[in-house]
Amino acid sequence: MKKVLLFAAGTLLFASCGGNDDASSIVITNEITSDMQLMLDAKKGFSKDTVIYLTDGVTFVDKVAQSAEFGKDDKPGLTYKALAMSSAINFSMKVQPGSGELGSIWFSCHPGDSDGITFQEPVFPLDRNGYKLTFMDSLKVGKSVYYDVLKFDVSMAPSSHCSASEYYYGYHDGLLMVVSKNGIEMSRVSEKVYKENVERRLEERAEADSIAQAVADSLAQAVADSIAQAFADSVAQATADSIRMANPSAEEDSTASTGDTTKVEIPQEVLDMADSIADCVKKAYLSGSLSAIKNCGI
């Protein structure tokens, strides 16, 4: 019996030692496909811009904040993010070397999608589940040519949560172009183009404000004038009536009968009231509150 027990214990010890040997035989290396290695090699030449600009070339331009974190020599890798200011261009990518396998590339392309999709041991061109990743030697965007570009085409992916259909990532520059689901290209432009757009819009807004101000001024003036006119009319009419009452047979005073208001002196309190109402109308108009005009006491 003792012999049997000793044999079993020995077997167990051997098995466990063997297991340890197997584990220690896995040497952790930063293995990666040559296609992905090229992405990591771009570390030195990567554009330092943290803000880039994309435009459709017609009406739309957006500011995109980007960050690229390259790993160190002993722990290589790349984490890239590009988030647009107002549009839903939200592109994240991770390139990770593998342990015993040739690494992976992960990307996510929607603000609400934190899961993303991972491709193990990617070799380009790659086509899996409708996702197509293609390496391009160069890509012309506007007047500039960018080299070493990876195209993410998700237009045929049935499970894609992406907010656009194509993304172009430049190894040395980050996001270069995005193609919307209805085929409109948003291309990289300089900061100058963005600033010109912003300045133009602000000028247009100021112009619209000045037009609104002019309309409000003229509206207020018209309100003040009409109050003064109404007061003068009523005074003239009252004068004419009183003359008629005092001397019905006399020839009518031409001024009173015609309601000539040029000789009527308008009291200061009436003018002040007219100015106050006009000012109220002007403020209400400029604030865009039409119902507030009703409360001006007209």
Binding site: D56, F60, A84, S86, S87, A88, I89, H110, P111, G112, S163, A164, V178, S180, K181, N182, I184, M186
Partner: peptide, 13 residues
Amino acid sequence: TWLESSFPIYSIK
């Protein structure tokens, strides 16, 4: 609630 448009590429949550 998600509101989205193809272009401009908007997504409002």
